[in-house]
């Protein structure tokens, strides 16, 4: 189970109404390498991974939900007071017609989130390598969003999130090293 702390992991401030930036940020909300995919991927893999790394998947999966919340807050703040005309101008006309001002799990191009974005192979090495790849892809996505964003407050939060991807990737690498270790019976081929 989880306990909920009613605050964000890192503060989210927005300097100006900018629905177009929200359209790009949606990629990290409901995209293939977004925070929802990450959280669900790790928490689901916990059950069939060796005990030594279950805790890592649990903790990182939980943190991804905290990131999801930050992204949601950014998107909400960027769009909540935008008029339909502003949304259409920002390329979010289709989103408005379907969802009004509600958030939805789809990527920047409007394709809805799908479970095919994540994988659980059951093989611990394959799963951890998928996780490492996902972290690097999320880091790259944050870079590209920062590149197209001119909002210094949003960029500050995005830089924090990008750094977390780097830390998570490092921890997953370490998990692979733990699984590679020769424990119990030494058997030399």
């Amino acid at each position: 189970m989880w306990y909920y702390e009613k605050k964000l992991q890192y503060p989210v401030k927005v300097s100006q109404c900018n629905p177009r930036l929200a359209k790009y940020l949606i990629e990290q909300y409901g995209g293939a390498d977004g925070e929802l995919s990450a959280a669900l991927r790790y928490l689901n893999q916990r059950y069939t991974i060796p005990d030594k790394v279950v805790g890592l998947l649990n903790d990182i999966g939980t943190e991804e939900f905290a990131h999801l919340e930050m992204i949601a807050t950014m998107i909400y703040k960027l769009t909540k007071d935008a008029t339909p005309e502003q949304l259409v101008e920002a390329g979010m006309g289709a989103h408005f017609v379907n969802h009004d001002h509600a958030l939805f799990y789809h990527n920047a191009a409007g394709a809805p989130w799908t479970a095919t974005y994540i994988q659980a192979k059951g093989d611990p090495i394959a799963d951890l390598y998928e996780d490492i790849a996902a972290e690097e892809k999320a880091r790259a996505t944050y870079q590209w969003i920062i590149d197209v964003s001119d909002d210094p407050f949003i960029n500050d939060s995005l830089k924090f999130l990008r750094e977390r991807e780097i830390v998570h990737s490092q921890r997953f690498h370490e998990a692979v090293e733990i699984l590679k270790e020769e424990r119990d019976r030494k058997k030399v081929f």
């Binding site: 060796p50 005990d51 030594k52 699984l179 590679k180 020769e182 424990r183 119990d184 030494k186 058997k187 030399v188 081929f189």
Partner: peptide, 8 residues
């Protein structure tokens, strides 16, 4: 000097 299978 390593094993190709790990068990837990």
């Amino acid at each position: 000097t390593y094993t190709l299978v790990k068990c837990y």
